[in-house]
Simulated scan of single mutants.
Amino acid sequence: MQDVIQFLINNSDVLSKVKEGTASLVGVSPEELKAILEVFFDEHIAPRAYYWQ
């Protein structure tokens, strides 16, 4: 899972395609996919960039 997350961080275009449903993550369960999308796209969960500056 850590490798998948790192890949998505480095390839944000792929993450967008997964969110749109035009790409899929092989080997990732539906529950894991839901969690990944929530973390990357739920503004209440994901840390704001300005927080880390």
Rank of each mutant, 00 (worst) to 15 (best):
V39F: 07
I9R: 12
I5H: 07
A35S: 13
V28W: 00
S16F: 03
F7L: 13
V4S: 00
L33F: 08
G27Q: 10
F7T: 14
N10V: 02
P30G: 08
E20W: 05
D42H: 05
I45N: 06
L33A: 07
E20R: 08
E31K: 12
N10R: 13
Q2P: 01
I5C: 11
F7N: 12
E31D: 13
G21L: 06
W52D: 11
F41V: 05
D13S: 13
T22A: 07
Q53C: 05
Q6E: 09
H44W: 02
N11Y: 07
S12V: 02
F7S: 12
V4M: 10
N11H: 15
A49L: 15
K17N: 05
E38G: 05
M1W: 10
S12T: 13
V26S: 08
Y51R: 12
E43I: 02
L25W: 02
A49P: 02
D13G: 04
Q6C: 04
S24W: 01
M1I: 14
A49S: 14
F40I: 02
Y50V: 09
S24M: 11
K19D: 09
D13W: 04
L33G: 00
Y50W: 11
T22R: 13
I9C: 11
E38C: 05
Q2V: 12
V4F: 03
F40K: 00
E43N: 13
F40A: 01
T22K: 14
Y50I: 11
S16E: 10
L15I: 06
Y51P: 00
A46C: 11
E20Y: 08
P47E: 09
K19C: 07
V18F: 02
E38Y: 15
E20D: 15
W52P: 02
I9F: 06
E32P: 03
S29A: 11
S16G: 08
E20G: 10
Y50D: 13
L8I: 08
P47D: 08
I36M: 00
A35E: 00
Q2C: 08
L8A: 04
A46T: 11
A46Y: 03
H44P: 00
V39A: 08
E32M: 11
N10H: 08
L15C: 03
E31F: 09
S29R: 02
N10C: 06
Y51H: 12
V39K: 10
V14N: 09
A23R: 13
S12D: 05
V28E: 00
V26E: 15
Q2W: 03
A49W: 15
Q53M: 13
Y50K: 11
S12Q: 15
V18K: 04
V28F: 00
A23F: 08
D3H: 01
F7H: 13
L8K: 00
H44N: 14
V14Q: 14
K34N: 13
N10K: 04
E32V: 01
P30T: 05
I36A: 02
F40N: 05
H44K: 15
K19G: 01
D42E: 06
N11R: 14
L33K: 01
L37S: 00
T22D: 13
A35C: 05
P30I: 05
S29Q: 06
N10Y: 07
I45T: 10
L25C: 10
A35H: 01
F7D: 11
L25S: 07
H44S: 13
V4Y: 12
L8T: 02
A46Q: 11
T22L: 10
P30F: 07
N10S: 12
A35I: 06
Y50P: 05
Q6L: 09
